[in-house]
Amino acid sequence: MLKVENLKKTYKSKKRVVEAVKNISFTTNAGEVFALLGPNGAGKSTTIKSILGLVVPDEGEIYINEINARKDRKKALFMMSAVLEGNRNIHWRLSVKENFLYFGALKGLGGKRLKERMLEVSELLGIEDKLNTIAGNLSRGYQQRLAIAIAILPDTPLILLDEPTLGLDVESAIEIRKIIKHLAEQGKTVLLSTHDMNLVEAVSDRVLIISDGKVVTFGTTKELKEMFKAKSYKIVFEKKPSVEIIDKLSEMVILEEKGNGDFSISVNFSTSSHTLYDIFEVLKEEKPQIKSIESEDPNFEEIFLRIIRGDKND
């Protein structure tokens, strides 16, 4: 559906030169939610804006359903729409309905078709009773719903969402998740850029993690979780080991004391040069009673942080 090949972009100004995207390639499929993750300044927004043609890349090609978006921007724009970061997608002084009519017209929609789509998407996004409200008077959550509604109004096969849950309350963020899932079920490709790991975990089929303008890793959320599975263990003791043991262990692993009297050590072998045998070697001296040994599955946020820090390679 969307194919990005060897994308490169450098921003040049009198003061500095910033290589925002160094060589990024990926392909997405129809009906897929594809997440683009990375820390601030990783090159996510530049990648999204390059796909949309808001930024002209230095090198690389972008294809949307075989159409070269760099060479035929007009055709490509008929096939994609976007919600960009922040409140930059709606006209604050127009009502919800007027926003639909204006932005629909920008995409070439009009007449009966536009009115039908307006009713469909406003119902889907739960804003059908807000049609006459001025967009600036809506809550942040409803403004974001309107922005998404406007993006899906032209019924394009590709939808790019840049930080769609930023600044939203939990309830609104959950609603946005449902909408993204619904879009994918309808066969749309959703390219998602976000810092919201709960959102990524809940809706993404595949994840591309970029850092410093380069692809760090790529896979399904399941594959990325698998990558770190069983590399972390938690050993829980019946009672706190002696100070000598704790001192030795603290040089090797993360220690944690819980309020209920339990004392545990967390060992992440992807970040530690020690093995479980090294830990037991220290424990053997005193043989403290072990309550349990659990393998820890890190959540997606932890996985992301480890990948960004380069833990994967250890």
Binding site: G53, S81, A82, G86, N87, N89, I90, H91
Partner: peptide, 11 residues
């Protein structure tokens, strides 16, 4: 207001 990008996204 930040709306300009959407106008640039018109085909």
């Amino acid at each position: 207001r930040g709306m300009i990008e959407q106008e640039f996204l018109s085909p």
